[in-house]
Simulated assay, not measured.
Amino acid sequence: MRYFLHLAYDGTQYHGWQIQPRTLTVQQELDRCLSQVLRQPVYCLGSGRTDSGVHASHQVAHFDAELPSGLDLPTFLYRLNRALPRDIRAQLVHEVPDKAHARFDAVARTYEYHVRTVPDPFAPTFSLYLDRAPTSPL
């Protein structure tokens, strides 16, 4: 069975989405926790990739697996979030047709860049602070 998993993450400590040798990535952590909760090897594929330190408020990934007998989707989602690091959160999971593809079936992608000109001690991880307005060339 194929599933779409909707998730969000704070990418501060990750070297992007995609698995890379000898470094921590979001996909690596997600695969590890999916495999742990489902008690079978699971590989997910994301709708897009993020660079090192980049966050996602809504990423979709698909994976193929058989849910253990008696495990419903709400309980699976609960257990997955308990296994995941606190900076990665699964928000929704649902069955999709076997040919559905998180990357190729996406209908839109949106990227947001947050720039502040006022200091905010609660926002440094999620936005860029400019202490001076950029000057224009002469």
Rank of each mutant, 00 (worst) to 15 (best):
T110R: 14
Q36W: 09
T75Y: 00
C33M: 14
S57W: 13
R116Y: 09
D98M: 12
T110G: 05
T12H: 05
Y113I: 11
Q91W: 00
D87V: 02
C44G: 13
P97C: 12
A108R: 11
F104M: 03
V37P: 08
R22K: 12
H62Y: 00
S52Y: 01
V37N: 12
Y43T: 14
D31R: 08
K99P: 00
Q59V: 02
L71W: 07
F63I: 10
A65V: 06
V54A: 12
D87R: 04
G70T: 12
A102R: 05
G16F: 07
A108L: 06
V26L: 01
R82H: 07
S52M: 09
V93Y: 04
L71Q: 13
E95V: 12
L67H: 05
A102K: 02
Q20S: 08
T50N: 10
D51Y: 03
S57E: 11
Q59M: 15
F76L: 15
V26Q: 10
H58I: 01
I88Y: 12
L92R: 15
D87A: 03
C33P: 07
A61P: 01
K99L: 09
Q13I: 13
Q28F: 02
Y14K: 15
H58V: 02
T117W: 09
D51M: 02
L34N: 10
Y14A: 14
A90C: 05
T50E: 06
H15Q: 15
A102C: 07
P119G: 04
H94M: 10
V96K: 08
A65Q: 06
A61L: 12
K99M: 04
H62I: 05
W17H: 05
N81P: 03
S35F: 04
T12N: 04
P97L: 13
A102E: 04
G11V: 00
L71V: 10
D105M: 00
L45E: 15
L67C: 02
Q59I: 05
V26D: 00
G16W: 09
P119E: 13
L67V: 02
T50R: 11
R49A: 05
Q13A: 14
A90I: 07
R86L: 15
T117F: 13
E29I: 03
L80H: 09
D105G: 02
S57M: 13
H101P: 06
T23R: 15
H114P: 01
V42W: 10
I88P: 08
A106E: 05
D51P: 01
Q18I: 00
T75Q: 04
H55E: 08
V37K: 11
